[in-house]
Simulated assay, not measured.
Amino acid sequence: MADKFAIITGASTGIGFELATLAAKNGYDILVVANEPLIDAAATDFKQFGTEVTSIEADLSTFDGVDRLLAAANGRRVDLLCANAGHGLGHAFIDQQPADWRFVVDTNITGTIYLIQKVLKEMVARNDGKILVTGSIAGYIPGAFQAVYNGTKAFIDSFTEALRNEIKDSDGVTLTTLMPGPVETEFFARGDMLDTSVGASDNKSDPVDVAQDGWDAVMGGKASIFSGWKTKLQGVLANVTPGSVLAEQHRKMAEPGSADN
C-alpha cells in the first residue's frame, strides 16, 4: 500500500484516464470511477505501475453514487481528488429532453460539488490535500447549441474561484481548476455532437497533453490553468468580447449540421 491515495472520477476514458495514469505512475494508490463498465478495463491498465488500484461503477449525478464512491475508499485519507466526471449535450435547448439536460446539470454541478464538499472538509480539517477540478473554457462562452453544458462549466469555473477564497487560510490545501478547450475524447459522441463543426474537427487537444497540464498545475499548487495557448487566448478574449458575439461564434461551431458547412 502506497502512502499516497487519489480518487479520480470519469477515469474510464479521456482526460480522466490520463490523470489516473499519471497518479499511478507517480506512486499513488488510486480509486477510479465512471458510470460505465469500461472503468474495470481501465483499472487493469493502471495496475501496470505497481500501485493499488480499485475501480467502481457509479452514477456521480446522484448523492447515492457519490456516497458509494467515498465508501469504496474504505476510510483512507484522500491526498488528491481529481473531480473530472462530466457530461455534454448538444442540439437546441428547446429540443432537449428534460431528463437529458438534468443529467448534465446533476453530473457536472450537483454531484461534483457534493463530492468536493465531502473531501475538502476533511482536507481543511487536517490542512493538507490537493483537488483538481475539470472546468472548461466553455464556462467563459455563452454556448449556443450547448447552452446547458456551457452553463454548468460557467458554474464550476466561478464556484472554484470562490471556494479558493473561502479556504485561503488553509495554506496546506490547494484547489486547482483545469480549463481545456475541445479535447479529442468520447465527449462529442456521447453528447450527440459529431455532426457539428467542433465535433468533427481534427484540431482538438490531445487528452494526454491536457491531463499533463492539469497534473503539473495541481502539483505546483496553481489556482487555475488554461490548457494550451489557444485556449488561454480564448479566455483572454472572452473577457472583452460581447456575449452576443461569443454566442454567435459558438453557434457556428456547435449548431447541428455545421460540420457540413
Rank of each mutant, 00 (worst) to 15 (best):
A23K: 01
G257T: 02
Q249M: 15
H91T: 13
I113N: 08
L163K: 09
D213V: 11
L19W: 02
L233N: 02
K222R: 14
R68A: 15
A11P: 05
A85G: 04
T152S: 14
R76G: 07
A34H: 05
L237F: 11
L19C: 10
E186Q: 15
G199S: 12
A83M: 07
I225L: 09
I56T: 04
G221F: 11
A73M: 12
K130H: 13
K118N: 03
F46W: 07
R68S: 15
G243W: 06
A72M: 09
A259K: 13
G135M: 11
A147C: 08
L233G: 08
L22E: 03
T62K: 12
K230P: 04
A99V: 11
V218S: 06
I15W: 01
N84Y: 05
H250Y: 13
G220H: 07
A71T: 12
R164T: 11
M219L: 09
V218I: 11
A125C: 10
E186F: 00
D169F: 04
S244L: 04
V53I: 11
I39C: 07
L115H: 03
N165D: 14
N26G: 08
M179W: 00
R102L: 12
D206A: 02
A147E: 08
S227K: 06
R68G: 10
A73N: 13
V183W: 00
D64V: 14
V32I: 15
A34N: 04
V66E: 09
D29M: 11
D67F: 03
F187T: 08
D67T: 08
G75T: 13
P37T: 08
D171A: 13
L178Q: 05
G199H: 06
L163F: 08
T54K: 15
L178T: 05
I30D: 01
V183S: 01
A20G: 15
Q212I: 07
D128L: 05
S224G: 08
G88D: 10
R102M: 12
T44G: 12
